[in-house]
Design a protein around this nucleic acid. Structure first.
Lengths: 215, 215
DNA sequence: TGATTGCATACTGTATACAGTACGCCGCAT
DNA sequence: ATGCGGCGTACTGTATACAGTATGCAATCA
């Protein structure tokens, strides 16, 4: 039950119903979710560990604000982890390659940006799911969760969706040629390029904030 | 208060007072710690997120058992993260280098194994503390916390302490020569070598377990 | 008029009470 | 003797009540 609550609250944060910096009113939120404060607080504590919330003693829980620094630092970690996971996983078998192709096709035809982001994460996870290091996979998944907020926020405000199909294609081509090193290198570049548009948006947004303060 | 409880319970797990696989009796433990179940449960939930505990619905919290698989996977991640953190941090300044030397000296003369382990972690953290990517540092710190259980358990059972001073010396030499790449490479080797004795011990231990089951 | 202090309110953090469930034990039947 | 079923106990999960504190507002004084 508190696990379900964590799921719901995480979704509320990720999709922006709970805005960055907002203070969480436990009494009201527990009422809205139809449970009492105790399990809600356990869920919120878990989200603190995930980095989605910040707990300030005597003040309660706050939604972690979107921070350019945090985002850049998070995104700089994936180029370290994903290529290594792919290297450990090896070239996917025919079945997995087919699944990756299907996902790519779905991404290309996805109309909703949110859906495209989910599919992109699925694609990256399918790429490395054979990796025997499950701790590494869990780490990657947790970073995916933490960055999804940023990707969704960008999408909501700009309608821009980062179409990575060309990069996916390069990775797939290397895999079909059984060139694991080449695929890892292409994956690393793919991870690095995803960062650019969001950083640009966050910087513009921060500037807008400052102007807002002056005005 | 629940934060303090988390600290205490974490220490109890790390130093073995709460053994791997053990079930946690919330009522008794809350009594021992002098608080009520509510804040204790929040602390335990946090430890679940850290990987120190496992929550099984309707059964409560269990201390995560020592697992050869988890340990190998955790330790295989540090050679990815630490060298990159060092690369981003750059060659430490003179003051930091002096501190690293002091720590090395303390490690060499440390008689208690537990103290040596703490000092080794301190050394590795001091090495990369200038890294601007704080998320990466936090990740490394969390992996340190998760592996410390294993290192302490090994130490308790075998009195063996992995003396990494020779490897530290190689890293320091490279840094003094301002050879960042060389230092990163040496650090990577250092991270990989730390794994060996503990893996050997865990394997022997698992075999002993099986024999125990037969006997 | 502006600043400061006291107060009221609302919210967090903790304790406790209660309900529901898992597990062990004893009795019974085969 | 062994397997099975019912029961009691103990523990988890949730709700709620209470205490302590932060915050906003108003009133008073400079």
């Amino acid at each position: 039950m508190s696990e379900a609550a964590a799921e719901v609250v995480r979704a509320m944060i990720v999709d922006g119903r709970l805005a960055g910096g907002e203070r969480i009113n436990e009494v009201r939120l527990s009422g809205e979710l139809g449970l009492s404060r105790t399990p809600l607080r356990e869920a919120l504590s878990g989200l603190v560990a995930e980095g989605a919330l910040i707990a300030r003693p005597r003040l309660g829980f706050f939604v972690a604000p979107l921070s350019l620094n945090e985002f850049e630092q998070l995104y700089d970690i994936r180029p370290l982890l994903d290529p290594e996971a792919l290297r450990l996983a090896g070239v996917p078998d025919a079945k997995s390659l087919a699944r990756l192709e299907r996902l790519d096709h779905q991404i290309a035809t996805a109309h909703l940006g949110e859906h495209a982001i989910t599919l992109d994460d699925e694609w990256h996870f399918a790429l490395i799911e054979a990796c025997p290091n499950k701790v590494l996979l869990e780490l990657i998944a947790s970073i995916m969760r933490r960055t999804r907020r940023y990707e969704l926020a960008l999408m909501r405000e700009t309608e821009h969706v980062h179409r990575a199909n060309a990069e996916h294609a390069r990775i797939m081509a290397a895999l079909r040629a059984r060139d694991l090193d080449g695929a890892c290198a292409a994956l690393k570049r793919n991870m690095q390029s995803g960062k650019v548009p969001i950083v640009a948006w966050l910087k513009a947004r921060d500037v807008a904030r400052k102007v807002g303060k002056w005005g």
